[in-house]
Each structure stands twice: as structure tokens, then as C-alpha cells.
Design a protein around this nucleic acid. Structure first.
Lengths: 157, 157
DNA sequence: CAAATATAGTGGCATATACCAGTAAATTCC
DNA sequence: GGAATTTACTGGTATATGCCACTATATTTG
């Protein structure tokens, strides 16, 4: 038993992803420089800018994030006037997430910082491996993966 | 510019890792079953069991985690009597982290749950790719990676 | 040895993220 | 069309995680 559990920590994919996530969180946050914008926040407003005024639901899905978690994460951005919520015209339950002019500006300003961080990352890991890693991670984050994972449990479990 | 930022979200390694991390967090947490132990907590107590009564500092390093973050993360586990802190004999600043008998028991009980989650993960991604992914992520989480990343900025930045 | 510095933790504060229990609005089903 | 159900979001609570300031202890230096 001692022998067996001996390497769980190294064989756990979830753990591995989390460790890497913490490391990269540090590195990319640092790259954001003096700006008080965190890496996650840059990522979020970039996604908001990419989707066209998504509802919170749509944005949460794109971010592979829980809806309520997204709501909480948006709060500081709304408070700092980078993002605003506008009620949807047709569905009065839904609220669309939109960048304010200030938010758009901030996002644009930080692109260079992100690029530098990403450049370094690619330099260290190699462009090929970097690209492949992103592909693999995107698959893991996909609904297809979640479905297949569930299906893999249909039998024994 | 619209064209350029168009795919930042997909080309950001940090973002990719985070999305995958959220997805796996969900999946592995579910696997923990009715137990109120989260995936991260299982991961943590497993690491504690693997290292021999590490100091918080040592444990934080192994987990690629901030020392104070670790301290906070340990609190619920201490409260629930799965873990205890014992002052180091020689260095009175240091506190060693130790599993309680109950903690050891809980960890052992959850190994099967973890294995099932990991089995499914490997089944979906393929054992090869799974193994390679963990290797890559372990590298990213390593100090060598952080050093190389810093070094990659020595020039232009 | 005493002063300066470095190290290990603690506590406070802020963001990140999830679950659950509402609430309100839309959709489905007699 | 009105009741039952589903959907989109909000707010509360809890863990996850980081930074900073501070305390206590160790180590280094003059």
C-alpha cells in the first residue's frame, strides 16, 4: 500500500494540471506588470471581446466555468468599470456582458504583455509542443471530453 | 487589430491550462463521491503522506503553491482533524505537516475513487498521451521551467 | 556577541471558483 | 391559457490561491 500510493501525486492528471496552472498563473500575472489586471481577468475580458456581447451563460460555457462563479468573477471588473451587464432585449432573464470603452482600451493595452509571456512560454517549451499542448488541453476542456469521460464510467463504476 | 486579438483566448497557454483545470476539477471532484473531501484536498493529503512530515515550506514547494496559500488550504483539513501541525524540533520557526490517523484512513479510502477517475481520464485521452501530458505539465510546474522562462526575457523585455 | 539580514509562518484582504437555494422569466404541457 | 418545468441569474457560503505586512526565530557579519 505504501508502495502503491507512492506515486499517486505524480500520476494524477488533475493534480498535474493544477500545479502547472499555479505556476503559469504566477508567470503570466507577473507579465501583466504594474497593471492591477490579473492574468485571469485579461483572459476573461479578451474572451468577452471575442464573443459578441455574450450572455453570462454563453460566456461561462466558453470559459468552461460555473455560471455563478463567472458572476462573482465579473464583479471586480464591473466595479472597476471595465465591463458592464446589459439586459437582453428578447429574454428578460438574460444579461449580456459587454466591455466598456475603458475595458476595451485596457484589454488592448495588455495584449503586448500577454504576447511577451506567451513568447517566452513558447520559447521554453518549443512552438510545436506548445501548440500541441494547447490542443490537448482544449480537448480536455471540451464537452466531448466530459461526455466521453462520463461514458467511460458507464460500465464498471 | 480585431483580426489579431481574434484568437488570443485560444493561443494562451495559461488560459488553456486553467480551462482544463476547471473541467478536471469538476470531474475529479465528482469522482470523490459523497465524501466531503475535494479533489484538491485528496491531492494534498496524498502529497503529505508521500513526503515524510514535510515542513509547510517544503510541502508548498512540492505543491508549487504559495506558502501562505498552503496555510489557508490546510485549515479546513486541520479543523476536520485529518492533518495536524507539529513544531519542528530543531527549527522553532518551522512546523511540520502530518496526517492524523483519521487523515491517513480517509486518504486510503479515497484512493479507489481517484483511480477510477484517472482510469477514465486515461481511457479517454489514451494512456500514452496521458502520460506525456503529465510529463509536460510536470516540466511546466518545475523550477527549471520558471528559470528558463525568466531567462527567455533577459534580452528584449 | 550584537546588529543586520534572511527564513518560516500567521493573519488580513482580494480574487478565483464551486455548490446550493432562491427568484424571475420563458417554455412546455395539459 | 394556466400549471408545471426549465432556464438565467443572484446571493450566500466554502474552499483555493496569491500578495502584503508582521512576528518570531535563525543565520550572517562586523
Amino acid at each position: 500500500m505504501e508502495k502503491q500510493e507512492d506515486s499517486i501525486w505524480a500520476h494524477c492528471s488533475s493534480s498535474s494540471v493544477r500545479r502547472a496552472s499555479r505556476q503559469l498563473g504566477q508567470l503570466y500575472d507577473d507579465a501583466m506588470g504594474l497593471s492591477d489586471l490579473r492574468g485571469t481577468q485579461f483572459s476573461l475580458i479578451t474572451q468577452i471581446g471575442y464573443l459578441n456581447e455574450p450572455t453570462q451563460k454563453e460566456l461561462a460555457k466558453a470559459m468552461v466555468m460555473d455560471l455563478s462563479a463567472l458572476g462573482h468573477t465579473l464583479k471586480p471588473l464591473i466595479r472597476d468599470d471595465l465591463v458592464e451587464l446589459v439586459p437582453d432585449e428578447k429574454d428578460r432573464r438574460a444579461k449580456r456582458v459587454r466591455l466598456t470603452p475603458g475595458g476595451r482600451k485596457r484589454q488592448a493595452e495588455m495584449v503586448a504583455n500577454w504576447q511577451e509571456a506567451q513568447r517566452r512560454f513558447d520559447a521554453v517549451l518549443g512552438a510545436e509542443k506548445s501548440e500541441e499542448l494547447r490542443r490537448t488541453l482544449a480537448f480536455i476542456a471540451s464537452e466531448d471530453f466530459a461526455k466521453a469521460y462520463e461514458a467511460a464510467g458507464e460500465k464498471g463504476d
